[in-house]
Design a protein around this nucleic acid. Structure first.
Length: 601
DNA sequence: GCCGTTTTCGGCCCGACTGTTTTCAGTCG
């Protein structure tokens, strides 16, 4: 519901813009869309309470009316009225990179462009050049953008982009005269998908900058543009895990990488600026303004009473800029970790100490060769121990998961015996790790579990997950998951919605009801750390945390490298403001044992 | 259309780049 309503608001804003409405009215709708999209719970649960709607930053009387109207009727009258005036395909045209509202409006009014197809025709027959300021280069740029969109110019999962960025950052740090290099943008904020990779390098002088830009240009698929302070290239994703060298033609998917070089005195300001989010930056700048300061990507500047050009061009000395920390400090707010910079109240909140990667001491969702994992039991346990974990839960699939070689109750018994033998061996070797004999039990379509209670009761640990029937309606899905949460033997609900990022929406249960039930029954909800899942998502985690629900961050380990996905789970947890004390994987061994056994008394 | 440590009216972040201009509009982040 949140997503659908947010899209409505976004479209209202875009249509208003194409009709030439006041730009601040447009911005107000964009902001409302973002606020609704970021809403922790379902907007439907909120809509009846007008006071709470109005309390949201950016929602006034008119927007509150529209929200209530949408929740009640499933549509917004204003949206329908605008839709009658603005062709639907124009919004697709607006999404073409490099084509903004002014251009779309002119194309529509003067050339009759109403969708991508008619845009393509206007480009091909040259009629677009009739428009003012539309020359040959602009036409080529738009054509290239259209091609990019056709080739699936969609956002990359964070797990695909991150290794590329880290490889390039490491390479840049080796360049002589480069004091620091960091990736910024949505990647640094830990967003689940990213559009391009922004890298910032702090250089000692112009020569060092030139070396850095040259280093990035060498051995990449395509150089989009290169100047003294900015270079844009496209990097092949397929050589992602191989050697970073060579000029051979790559035909596969690529990602755009932008490198900017900045001097040390403004590195912090630039890093902050390029990390965003844009909304966070705007909020910070408004705050600076109230304190008679100007914040830009060069630093934080005092007001000198002039307004000609930028402060740095007037020779004004910045009061901060070298580091992000000193800028936040001068503005009188707590240093905000990158993952929280979304203008979701982080500047006014008493920020909690959010969880960190090092806090995780247990993996509670792992598969072996008994079902669909790649590692035998002993190897799984050894690798968990090498990671410094005090506990590993062995949770192979249950019997209905036939494609994943789910275990029958008989095989489960055998596995239990094997784990007991392993425990004896570990004791003898002096290896301290708790190996929990568990299962990832299917939550069947009606909410019942895939093993009988006597089978479940014989296990130490139960992760219950939905795997099939992932298109159920909200009511059915809510009932299904509530039934699993209420089951007295269940510890964790694994990947609660079953979504796959960019591929499958998954279930859309009433999250507020799930959180209340999870809290009541002391069941943890999982953040599945695989970058294709990240389920729960960040906004869910925020609401769950506020409701006091326990959260598990699990890698759903199938292969050795899956342990490395933990970082994405932790990034998502941090985006959800998760404090360490709500995360079951961050418990001490004794705390975890106590919680695990509490379900078996 | 929203909002208030000057304000219930009059503001609403800041700068760079690009291509097209002959001083700047449009787009982006």
């Amino acid at each position: 519901m949140n997503e659908r309503l947010a899209a409505k608001f976004e479209e209202i804003g875009q249509m208003l813009e194409l009709l030439g409405a006041n730009k601040f009215r447009v911005i107000a709708h964009e902001k409302a869309a973002r606020v609704i999209r970021d809403l922790p719970g379902d907007v439907g649960e909120l809509a009846s309470d007008r006071e709470r709607l109005l309390a949201l930053d950016g929602i006034g009387a008119k927007q509150a009316d529209k929200i209530a109207e949408f929740v009640e009727t499933g549509d917004i009258g204003e949206h329908a009225e605008l839709r009658a005036k603005v062709p639907a395909g124009l919004l697709d045209v607006l999404s073409v990179p490099g084509v903004g509202p002014k251009t779309v409006k002119a194309m529509w009014e003067q050339l009759g462009v109403t969708d991508l197809a008619s845009l393509q025709r206007a480009l091909d027959d040259g009629s677009v050049t009739q428009l003012p300021r539309m020359g040959a280069k602009s036409v080529e740029r738009i054509k290239a953008s259209l091609k990019f969109l056709e080739s699936g110019g969609s956002r990359l999962p964070i797990g695909v982009a991150m290794p590329v960025a880290e490889r390039l950052v490491a390479m840049l740090r080796e360049v002589e005269g480069v004091a620091q290099a960091e990736f910024a943008g949505s990647l640094r904020r830990g967003v689940e998908t990213i559009g391009d990779i922004d890298i910032l390098a702090c250089v000692e002088n112009d020569e060092a900058a030139a070396r850095a830009h040259k280093a990035l240009r060498e051995g990449v698929v395509d150089v989009v543009g290169s100047g003294e302070t900015k270079t844009s290239v496209r990097v092949s994703l397929e050589r992602n895990f191989g050697r970073w060298k060579g000029h051979e033609e790559a035909t596969g998917p690529t990602v755009q990488v932008d490198l900017r070089t900045v001097p040390g005195e403004s590195f912090g300001a630039a890093l902050m600026y390029f990390t965003g989010s844009k909304a966070h930056n705007v909020a910070l700048r408004e705050r600076a303004q109230k304190q008679k300061l100007t914040l830009n990507e060069y630093g934080l500047f005092p007001d000198d009473g002039k307004s000609e050009g930028s402060p740095q061009s007037r020779g004004v000395k910045p009061v901060a800029g070298k580091t992000e920390g000193e800028i936040y400090k001068k503005l009188g707010v707590a240093v905000v970790p990158p993952e929280l910079r979304e203008d979701r109240g982080e500047l006014d909140a008493d920020l909690p100490g959010v969880i960190e990667l090092e806090d995780i001491k247990a993996e509670l969702h792992a598969h072996t060769t008994e079902s669909d994992g790649e590692m035998a039991l002993a190897e799984l346990v050894r690798r968990a121990h090498e990671r410094g974990f005090h506990t590993i839960a062995v949770t192979d699939h249950s019997k209905s998961a036939t494609v994943a070689n789910g275990l029958s109750p008989e095989r489960l018994k055998k596995q239990r015996a094997e784990i007991e033998r392993l425990h004896e061996q570990l004791d003898a070797d002096g290896v301290e790790i708790d190996v929990l004999c568990g299962s990832e039990v299917d939550i069947l379509a009606d909410g019942s579990l895939d093993y009988d209670d006597d089978v479940l009761a014989a296990l130490d640990f139960i992760v219950a997950s939905p795997h099939a029937a992932l298109s159920q309606d909200t009511k059915t899905a809510t009932k299904r998951l509530l039934r699993a949460i209420e089951h007295p033997l269940v510890h964790v609900i694994g990947h609660p919605t079953g979504r796959l990022i960019g591929r499958r929406a998954g279930l859309e249960p009433a999250m507020g009801e799930l959180f209340a039930a999870a809290k009541e029954h002391d069941v943890a909800l999982e953040i599945n750390a695989h970058w294709m899942r990240l389920d729960l998502r960040d906004t869910h985690v925020r609401a769950a945390g506020e409701a006091g629900v326990k959260i598990a961050i699990d890698c759903d380990v199938h292969a050795p490298a899956d342990f490395d996905n933990l970082r994405y789970g932790v990034l998502t947890a941090r985006r959800g403001w998760l404090p360490k004390d709500l995360c079951v994987n961050a418990m001490t061994r004794a705390q975890l044992r106590a919680w695990v056994r509490s379900k078996r008394s």
